[in-house]
């Protein structure tokens, strides 16, 4: 309930702002509406092209443009059939459906782990005062700069060989390359800096009075975290979950590098990439495959989108 109340007030404030701000007035005009719709339409054209192509016959695809579908509607579900059930040429006998489970098994923990750790870390960095907490926060923030491509091989070496200094083993080999854990860990590691940053900004802006009142009532840090901070942070957590879900779901690089050729743990993206065939002669399957794979992120996005804008604003702009 408290969340609902909180969001109503800024809305009213925004309305007042629009009336007094000439920039807002301009954006609300008919001209602006038309511009926005034109840009949106232009932006959608390539997607529309892929979408119509996914229903066309290979012969049509290679001989004329996708817009011909409106003049000569000749629709086929062959591409979707190939993606779901294989193409009958024994290429992908079972289609990509089984790999959806792999994608989910990879994605769900890879969203839950960083969110859990980041929420706790963000609370700790904003409300538990200890020496060097600012430095740690700054250091974590700076870690966002490390590009994932640079750390693929060192991380893989850590998983397979551990870290040794001469004969002293600093970190034993983890032995998780080619297992799901070997994919969860890199995703978690790379999500943490941004997750902690976003959630820190949100959690540190919670009213101090709430925390103090709770502490006066004898609540420990853990109780405050669980009973006050966690319920209040739901919009920010949901917003970051959407982000992280989309990143992990769409990821191909980490999955390819860390699945280490283990067929059973490959996500659906890795399988889809293979649908085109060795010489790329079946690229028409990719059009259907693209729409099959975006189905899940779309469901996640639409079911959580009411948190999305709210959560992002709460985390970044104050």
């Amino acid at each position: 309930m408290s969340i609902l109340n909180r969001t109503r007030t800024p809305k009213r404030a925004a309305k007042g702002l629009a009336e007094s701000n000439p920039g807002r007035k301009l954006l609300g005009s008919k001209f602006a509406t038309i511009t926005v719709w034109t840009i949106a339409a232009l932006w959608t054209i390539p997607t529309l092209g892929i979408f119509t192509t996914s229903f066309r016959d290979k012969k049509d695809i290679v001989t004329n443009g996708w817009w011909n579908i409106f003049i000569h509607p000749h629709l086929t579900l062959a591409n979707y059939h190939a993606v779901f059930f294989g193409d009958g040429q024994s290429g992908l006998t079972n289609g990509v459906l089984p790999y959806f489970i792999n994608s989910l098994v990879i994605t769900i923990p890879a969203v839950l782990f960083p969110i859990t750790i980041a929420t706790m870390a963000a609370y700790c960095l904003s409300w538990v005062k200890f020496r060097g907490s600012d430095f740690i926060f700054f250091f974590i923030f700076a870690l966002q700069i490390v590009p994932i491509q640079m750390s693929l091989i060192p991380l893989l070496q850590l998983f397979t060989g551990g870290v040794h200094l001469g004969t002293v083993t600093l970190i034993p080999k983890l032995g998780i390359a080619g297992k799901f854990a070997g994919i969860w860990l890199p995703h978690t590691m790379f999500a943490l800096p941004l997750a902690i940053y976003l959630l820190h900004n949100f959690i540190s802006s919670l009213p101090r009075d709430l925390m103090e009142a709770a502490h006066v009532d004898g609540a420990s840090h853990f109780t405050v975290f669980r009973r006050i901070v966690l319920p209040l942070s739901v919009p920010a957590i949901a917003a970051f979950s959407i982000f992280q879900f989309l990143w992990v779901w769409n990821d191909l690089l980490v999955a390819l590098s860390f699945s280490a050729g283990t067929e059973g743990i490959e996500p659906v993206n890795a399988k889809l990439a293979g649908l085109v065939g060795t010489w790329g002669s079946h690229w028409e399957y990719l059009t259907a495959g693209a729409f099959v794979t975006i189905a899940v992120p779309l469901i996640v996005f639409f079911s959580l989108q009411r948190y999305f804008v709210r959560g992002l604003l709460a985390g970044s702009v104050k």
Binding site: L152, L155, L156, Q157, F159, G161, A177, S257, A260, A273
Partner: peptide, 14 residues
């Protein structure tokens, strides 16, 4: 992506 994956796997110990 065999051509890019193979060097990664060989260097990474897998």
């Amino acid at each position: 992506s065999f051509e890019s994956q193979l060097p990664v796997r060989v260097a990474g110990g897998t």
